[in-house]
Write a protein that binds this DNA or RNA. Structure first.
Length: 726
DNA sequence: AAGTTGACTTAGGACATAAAAT
DNA sequence: ATTTTATGTCCTAAGTCAACTT
């Protein structure tokens, strides 16, 4: 009632403002032109219905069509906020009390070990390092146990020498990123090695010699023969077009049809090469590793404000065929080989400037301490800049990461007010504000990305919240017994499908319908809204607040809630890890982090089930043995019979323990079929939540974070105890 | 205000290596 | 010991967002 009233008033007062289906952004209107099939004169073709014929947007790439965010996902995960949805069901495998004792003991042991190790590390302060090193060096050539020791020592040494930047007071945030910066520059891609003459390229069945450059590009394609890309028309078209550009005029004259090219010999050759590589001898592998380490040592680090810091990506991207994701119009184009003349070096003024390859010159050497990159270049496919920057364990990245979570925590305190505001705005007289409110609701509740506008035709057709088009949503007054359901179906970042049916409050439902009035599927749902003005608004509410902060905030708060809800104090370690993974999974579902199901997934699951069955049978058998041993013992109370009985009992216990482990594993794997946990763990979850959880429940941090992750989150691990609350 | 560019974070897949199963 | 499977690392594309330009 109320809305009907207000909406008519609105319509009456300023109809265009409300319903104008066209964006007032210039380029948007321009873009719209390209959405129609054009005739030979460049005018939109008219269909039988008298309307212009639309270019059909290909909706789904064949991969990633599964629905995670859908039916049972998001709404269940979220609690306490807009809805009262059920929390994630903790089904099945939880109660493994029988093994408690064993677990406890193991855990104790481990804990003690840990404490020892930690103590050792604490004592091993810098002055001792040299001693350790010199001691270790001569022994490294000796037998394997000593070798192991040195490795461990090296690790400890490394840990001790790591810069604990978080213990220092923060730099003032004045936009200056470094005072001094010195590095070795990028490592160039290895030069092209021509194929042996025994590997023929054939055209139309006949062997054909190719000039090195032509041949090199040919190998890019040949290497991908088994890949899906080569079955795509655009890929082939782009590749062939670009390939012809590097051909000599003679070659170009002959090679006019990709279909007549026979890359198989080359393909085989590279397969053979990689087999060969796999089959290398131990020494060869060792030698190669040493060489690799040497390179890492030389190029992999820089001096940043007098601290040695690890570089994230010191190798320049080698030439290749562009692998755009989803329906990318540029897939298959040649990504060119980079030379010194393409490369900009950034370092401090007095530092030793990295030397370009002999006879070559850098494009530029600059000394810009307001940026964090050491090297940059412009990539030739999309004309975007690429950078060499520091590893995630560096101060500059770590501090920023920390700050990101602090901003998200700040949002936690303000979010109630912000939500109040957007609920109020749902009824605003001004359409732009109403749209903003609905968009914000989606971003907050569904953790959608902001959704910047993107140039049409430059990349795959993907959207986020602000760039949603009408065709991406359907409204259902009633669906599956639920009222006011909005069905989302669109391709997001990386062309990952987002599919979700969400019951929403009536006001949201009405608004969305209102926004869609008089629009076509291809018109923007939020025609009065851009990410930039949304972010400006958010920034006015809270310093540092942008759309993506909601994702971080909701991800982290969800993890914390789920951990609280799911962790069972009486559970085994494996059981707790399952709870952790399930909490992590709830977040991944919320953020729609998907992966392609591992190949042979169903077979693998089948095998896992068989293994479980077998274990159950084994247990049954073992139990029989216990029984008979017991009766043996009853009849002849000998020591040996007693022992036999005891061992049999132990065996059953051991088997049962193994069974539980298998079951937990299988459950975890099944639930994780198409869900990627890594992305949220790495980018959305405040690591301090996990660290605190580990401490609280006596879970070794190694169970949750691997070495790299511990490195990245060293600040959090060092900083927090079990009382930390996000 | 719209459009453009630059810098930085976030993302899934490919590939390599380690661990587990046989 | 060998093969299979799980995990970790590398790679680079694809987003976000703010500053700059027009």
């Amino acid at each position: 009632m109320e809305l009907a009233h207000s909406s008519t008033t609105l319509n009456g007062s300023s109809p265009q403002k409300l319903h104008s289906p066209h964006k007032h952004k210039h380029h948007k209107d321009k873009d719209r032109k390209h959405k129609y099939v054009l005739d030979s004169n460049g005018k939109p073709k008219i269909g039988p219905d008298g309307k212009r014929i639309r270019i059909k947007r290909e909706h789904r790439p064949e991969h990633h069509t599964a629905n995670h965010a859908g039916d049972q996902g998001v709404m269940q995960v979220k609690t306490e906020r807009m809805d009262s949805g059920e929390p994630h069901q903790n089904s099945g495998v939880t109660n493994h009390g029988d093994n408690e004792e064993i677990r406890r003991m193991k855990k104790k042991l481990k804990k003690e070990k840990h404490a020892k190790k930690r103590k050792a590390e604490e004592n091993d302060v810098k002055p001792n390092i040299k001693k350790v090193k010199t001691k270790a060096e001569p022994s490294s050539t000796l037998s394997s146990p000593t070798k192991k020791k040195t490795k461990k020592m090296k690790e400890e040494e490394e840990a001790a020498s790591k810069w604990k930047w978080w213990e220092e007071k923060k730099d003032t945030d004045d936009g200056i990123k470094w005072k001094t910066l010195e590095h070795k520059g990028p490592m160039f891609a290895p030069e092209y090695e021509p194929l042996p003459s025994s590997v023929p390229f054939k055209y139309g069945g006949k062997v054909m010699h190719l000039e090195p450059e032509t041949e090199e590009v040919m190998t890019f394609y040949a290497k991908m023969l088994d890949h899906d890309y080569t079955s795509k028309e655009i890929f082939n078209k782009n590749f062939f077009h670009d390939w012809r550009k590097v051909m000599t005029s003679k070659e170009k004259e002959i090679i006019t049809d990709l279909g007549k090219c026979d890359f198989r010999a080359t393909n085989e050759y590279f397969k053979m090469k990689s087999e060969e590589r796999k089959a290398r001898s131990k020494q060869e592998k060792q030698k190669e590793k040493e060489e690799k380490d040497l390179i890492q040592e030389e190029y992999g680090f820089c001096m940043w404000d007098n601290h040695k810091e690890k570089i994230g990506n010191f190798r320049l991207e080698p030439p290749s065929l562009f692998r755009g994701r989803g329906d990318h119009p540029k897939m298959g184009k040649i990504k060119k080989r980079l030379q010194a003349k393409d490369i900009i070096i950034n370092c401090s003024k007095g530092s030793k400037v990295p030397s370009p390859p002999p006879g070559q010159k850098w494009k530029e050497v600059r000394h810009d301490n307001t940026v964090t990159w050491l090297v940059s270049w412009t990539e030739n496919i999309q004309g975007q800049n690429k950078y060499i920057m520091l590893n995630a364990n560096s101060r500059i990245k770590g501090e920023k990461d920390w700050q990101k979570y602090e901003t998200a925590r700040k949002l936690k305190d303000r979010v109630d007010k912000i939500r109040q505001d957007y609920w109020r705005d749902m009824k605003s007289q001004e359409m732009a504000i109403r749209q903003r409110a609905v968009a914000l609701f989606f971003i907050d509740k569904l953790a959608l990305r902001a959704g910047n506008e993107k140039e049409e035709g430059e990349g795959a057709d993907t959207v986020g919240c602000c760039s949603l088009r009408c065709e991406h949503i359907k409204t259902h007054k009633m669906l599956d017994m639920q009222e006011y359901v909005i069905e989302f179906d669109f391709l997001g970042k990386d062309s990952i499908r987002y599919y979700n049916k969400v019951p929403v409050p009536k006001q949201v439902f009405k608004n969305v319908n209102l926004f869609m009035e008089n629009k076509d599927g291809e018109d923007d749902l939020f025609d009065r809204l851009t990410t930039s003005n949304l972010n400006k608004y958010l920034n006015s509410l809270m310093d540092g607040l942008t759309a993506k902060v909601f994702r971080t905030y909701n991800a982290s708060i969800t993890l914390q809630q789920q951990l609280n809800d799911l962790t069972d104090p009486d559970d085994t370690l494996a059981g707790r890890m399952l709870s952790y993974n399930r909490s992590n999974r709830a977040v991944a579902i919320l953020c729609n982090h998907q992966r392609a199901a591992p190949k042979n997934f169903s077979e693998q699951m089948q095998r896992a089930r068989e293994r479980i069955q077998k274990k159950q049978d084994d247990i049954a058998d073992a139990k029989q043995e216990v029984k008979s041993a017991k009766s043996d013992f009853k009849h002849h109370k000998t020591e040996s019979n007693k022992k036999k009985y005891e061992t049999k009992k132990k065996k059953v216990e051991r088997l049962q323990e193994q069974l539980i482990k298998l079951e937990v594993q299988a459950t975890d794997r099944e639930e994780n079929k198409e869900i990627a946990l890594g992305t949220s763990k790495l980018n959305y979850l405040d690591p301090r939540i996990s660290v605190a959880w580990c401490k609280k429940w006596d879970v070794p941090i190694e169970k949750v974070y691997n070495k790299t992750q511990r490195d990245k989150f060293a600040w959090a691990i060092a900083m927090v105890d079990e009382t930390y609350v996000f």
